[in-house]
């Protein structure tokens, strides 16, 4: 253990190395460490936020599902009601139509009947006149006795 001027050189080296580390080494490393710590913290916070958002979203989706189900059930009920109503209406309409058709048919039948009866009446009258003509032969003048013949026709 002998002392010599190596001591002074060592002091100088010591300070230069310390200065160098302070100037060029320490700040970037510490900065990287701090940044990484911040990144990790941010990541954890983001994960937490994501979790919360997921929870919220799942709640919202459950809600939406529920309301959707309700709405569709409501819609179905409405549709069923409407369908029943339409059927009822159609039935009523059909009934009215049928009644109308039946009434028309009845009226036509009546008219037909009336017309047939009229025709029959004419034919009978003609037949009666022909019969009478055959019986009376010349004695009866169709023109002279038209009034009488129509009176007979009315009575039939």
């Amino acid at each position: 253990m002998n002392l010599n001027s190596t001591l002074y050189a060592q002091i100088v080296v010591f300070f230069i190395l310390a200065w160098f580390t302070m100037r060029f080494v320490w700040p970037p490393i510490v900065k990287a460490l701090d940044e990484r710590a911040k990144k990790i913290a941010d990541g954890l916070a983001a994960a937490d936020r994501g979790k919360q958002e997921l929870e919220l979203a799942s709640k919202r989706s459950a809600e939406a599902l529920r309301t959707g189900k309700e709405k569709s059930a409501e819609l179905l009920a409405q549709t069923e009601k409407r369908v029943a109503q339409i059927i009822e209406e159609a039935k009523a309409q059909a009934r009215v139509e049928a009644d109308r058709v039946i009434a028309g048919a009845k009226a036509e039948i009546e008219q037909e009947t009336l017309r047939a009866r009229e025709g029959l009446r004419d034919q009978v009258a003609a037949l009666a006149v022909a019969g009478a003509e055959k019986i009376l032969r010349r004695e009866i003048d169709a023109r002279a006795h038209a009034e009488l013949l129509s009176a007979i026709k009315q009575d039939m």
């Binding site: 001027s5 190596t6 160098f20 970037p28 490393i29």
Partner: peptide
């Protein structure tokens, strides 16, 4: 025991070399 006219070259060399190695490695990482 004490002689300020003397330098230990080996101590100077190894301490300086290892000191430079230290700051070189650290600076590389930094």
């Amino acid at each position: 025991i004490v002689d300020w006219t003397v330098f230990n070259f080996d101590t100077l060399f190894y301490s300086l070399a290892l000191g430079l190695l230290t700051v070189f490695l650290l600076a590389r990482v930094a």
